[in-house]
């Protein structure tokens, strides 16, 4: 009986494979790519529990248990890395999240189409500048010897400030430059949501004598809410995921006390000092925490707003 069933489903799959053979052929490279470059590294993360060093195979290296995790939890950097990561990402979120929404709302109020288009084009532009150029621009504009910002300060009789070298300036610069680079780009998705709002709502509001301000408050903003909540869930779920690329370009040992986050620490210890197992352990800790965070935020959102990522 059982054997018969197995054969039946086996035959069915065989039939499917023959029927969809060309679709399989089309999707095969993608499947292989994900296996090699995403699933093998997931398996490779076991070196976090091993004593792996260059020249060894992952398979052949000795088990080390939780040694690397313990080393990380006990290290003096543990608290600093966690708090730097969380502070940097939550401040970025608090300051940059509303900016794109406000920008989209204001853009929506512009009546002259040509002007609107020009402003949109300009606002997306910084998104296409590479991080290297962006940080390079920042460090040259802010240079204490010949940067334009310090020129202005000097003209007002103030002392030049070494912006890039002072810890106190790291967070404002990181967040401010992030806003410059992404506010326009991030507003696109809100503009899409605005187009989808039923124009009859505005007409009805106008007949009822609503002011433009009331329209914005009662029609436009509620129309944006589902998109905003969705993006907020994604952002909250990624709070522990601060990218290292921009920070590596921006920071220096003088600003490590505020700029060093988990991912940059993984890069320095794991790659630059070639402590692969330790780096992998810290990275794994980070992605597990991040994954748990994403799941819980999604669950909470599902409970209260019925909006879910999947």
């Amino acid at each position: 009986m059982k054997k018969g069933n197995g054969n039946k489903s086996c035959n069915r799959i065989k039939k499917y494979i023959i029927r969809d053979r060309y679709l399989i052929l089309l999707v095969a490279p993608v499947v292989i790519y994900y296996f090699v470059f995403h699933y093998i590294p997931m398996y490779g993360a076991v070196i976090a529990f091993k004593d792996f060093s260059a020249g060894q195979t992952i398979w052949g290296s000795e088990w080390a248990g939780l040694k690397w995790f313990q080393e990380f939890f006990r290290s003096v950097y543990f608290g600093r890395l966690i708090s730097n990561t969380l502070i940097l990402s939550s401040l970025s979120l608090v300051f940059s999240f509303p900016v794109s929404i406000i920008f989209a709302l204001l853009l929506n109020e512009i009546r002259r189409k040509a002007l609107k288009r020009v402003i949109q084009t300009v606002s997306y532009l910084p998104h296409f500048i590479s991080l290297v150029v962006m940080v390079g621009m920042m460090s040259n504009f802010l240079s204490p010897s010949d940067g334009v910002v310090n020129q202005i300060l000097k003209n007002f009789g103030m002392q030049p400030i070494d912006f890039m070298g002072e810890s106190a300036w790291f967070r404002p610069l990181y967040i401010g430059s992030g806003i410059w680079q992404s506010f326009g780009w991030n507003s696109i998705i809100y503009m899409a949501a605005l187009i989808a709002i039923d124009p009859n709502l505005y007409e009805a509001a106008r007949i009822d004598g609503c002011s433009r301000w009331q329209e914005m408050l009662h029609i436009t903003i509620p129309g944006l809410m589902p998109t905003a909540v969705m993006l907020l869930i994604l952002a909250l779920g990624n709070l522990m995921n601060v990218g290292f690329e921009k920070i590596i370009l921006m920071y220096s040992p003088a600003t490590y006390d505020v700029a060093d986050v988990i991912s940059t620490y993984v890069y320095r210890r794991g790659i630059l000092s070639a402590q692969y197992s330790f780096g992998a352990a810290v990275g794994l800790f980070n992605s597990v925490i991040n994954f748990i965070l994403l799941l819980s935020i999604n669950k909470i959102s599902k409970l209260y707003t019925q909006i879910s990522l999947w």
């Binding site: 993360a45 992998a280 990275g283």
Partner: peptide
């Protein structure tokens, strides 16, 4: 099945070091 297989990698990955070694 394949969509699921790909979507998983958007939320979970091996990390910098294992990718570097690979």
């Amino acid at each position: 099945a394949i969509m699921m297989y790909i979507a998983v990698t958007m939320f979970f990955n091996g990390g910098l070091i294992p990718t570097f070694i690979l």
